[in-house]
């Protein structure tokens, strides 16, 4: 059948080389080949966003991208978000504001929120909700996710923030 294709990409700062079937989805390459299981699969129609990662600095749904399409790219997954042992402010916000329950949508939700804050440092409630429309959460009802993103935004702007039991 179809020949395998050589690919090379940087994932969370490490260079990865491999050969994949053209049909292998990026999400399966990350999860199955590289063992980065933090990126999840919640649907088969590109609705849920549990698989969101950053490719060349932009949020994408890794279930709607063949690994070959990311050839030569730089990919960041949820596992790559912690820097020097420090949580990304969005991760911290989700923890402080109880922005997750079962945690399954959380990696994609965090990656989508981080993408928003890269583009808009001071989003309104409505802007946050609009930016997260491609990420479904069945547990939280979203209110605490909005608060988590606001927390992260404030922290990234260098403003004081209030945590869970403060």
């Amino acid at each position: 059948m179809a020949d395998k294709v050589r690919i090379r990409m940087t994932v969370n700062g490490l260079e990865q080389r491999g050969e994949v079937e053209p049909r292998m989805l990026l999400v399966h390459y990350l999860r199955e080949t590289l063992g980065l299981t933090g990126t999840h699969i919640g649907c088969d129609t590109s609705q849920c966003g549990a698989c969101v990662v950053h490719v060349d600095g932009q949020a994408v749904k890794s279930c709607t991208l063949f690994a070959v399409q990311a050839d030569g790219s730089s990919v960041t997954t949820i596992e790559g978000l912690v820097k020097d042992g420090q949580y990304h402010p969005v991760q911290e916000g989700f923890w402080e504001k109880h922005g997750l329950q079962c945690g399954f949508c959380t990696p994609g939700m965090i990656m989508a929120a981080a993408d928003l804050l890269n583009k808009n440092s001071n989003p309104t409630d409505a802007e946050i909700r609009h930016a997260l429309e491609g990420n479904l959460c069945r547990c939280t009802g979203y209110q605490n996710i909005v608060l988590a993103v606001q927390y992260a935004a404030a922290k990234m702007r260098g403003e004081p923030v209030t945590g869970a039991a403060d």
Partner: peptide, 9 residues
């Protein structure tokens, strides 16, 4: 259209 991740691709 779609959502931000969809719009990025």
């Amino acid at each position: 259209i779609g959502d931000p991740a969809v719009r990025n691709r």
